[in-house]
């Protein structure tokens, strides 16, 4: 072995190999513990603006995100959860952490909804991602009863702009709170399903679920 003729990158890689090795189980457990502590500290210091979790559902994985005010976003896997989180970072705040406990109530109510035992959601909602006419549309949607549907034209009328039928379609297509704000209950006047954020198949599943319960 040479005596200090310089310390090369290869030497460094060898010397520090143990520190750059993949995480051990103990490291992973330590980081989990630290993550949880960070979430608690952040909450008590008011430094957490958005908490989220991902839950399984019959429609695939759902992202649930909440601010201090309430649920701010529900997203289907089809929408790309990473992209949705990035958009929340830009539009709401980048102070975002995965804190499953903060979304326990929402997860439970969605479970009950999919099991057919819940007809209305009782959760605080944060509508900050919607404005103007789209917001009026979203605020009308919970008035469409479980198991019933309305046409885009009927919703336009109810939201105060009978001629804004296409705008109702846009409001539904950009609903930040699908399922909880039931845009799936808005269908075409001819009775066909119309588009849906989570895919037409998801819309069909939801309407059959509500018809059967």
């Amino acid at each position: 072995m040479s005596i200090d003729t310089g310390f090369t990158d290869a030497d460094a890689a060898r010397l520090f190999a143990p520190a750059t090795a993949p995480l051990t189980t103990a490291d992973a457990a330590a980081l989990d513990r630290l993550h949880q502590r960070l979430a608690e500290d952040a909450r008590s210091k008011g430094a957490l603006d958005v908490a989220y979790r991902v839950v399984d559902s019959p429609l695939g994985k759902l992202l649930l995100a909440a601010t201090e005010q309430g649920i701010v976003r529900v997203a289907f896997a089809l929408e790309d959860h990473d992209a949705v989180l990035q958009l929340l970072a830009e539009k709401v705040s980048p102070r975002i952490l995965r804190v499953p406990a903060r979304l326990d109530a929402a997860a439970r109510e969605l479970d009950e909804y999919f099991a057919g035992t819940r007809r209305e959601f009782d959760l605080p909602l944060d509508f900050r991602l919607s404005r103007g006419f789209r917001l009026s549309v979203l605020q009308h949607l919970p008035h469409i009863a479980y198991g019933r549907t309305e046409s885009y034209a009927e919703v336009a009328q109810a939201a105060g702009s009978p001629r804004a039928v296409r705008a109702v379609g846009t409001a539904c297509a950009t609903n930040p709170l699908p399922l909880i704000v039931p845009c799936h209950r808005v269908v075409k006047s001819d009775g066909s399903f119309g588009g849906y954020l989570g895919g037409t198949e998801a819309k069909r599943t939801l309407l059959s679920l509500e018809a059967a319960a």
Binding site: L23, Q86, A89, P94, I96
Partner: peptide
């Protein structure tokens, strides 16, 4: 580049900061 969600920062840099 816009700021990433802080969760991504924790995932990406948490292990290195712990070693440091």
């Amino acid at each position: 580049e816009p700021r990433k969600p802080f969760e991504a920062i924790v995932q990406e840099h948490g292990p290195t900061v712990l070693r440091v």
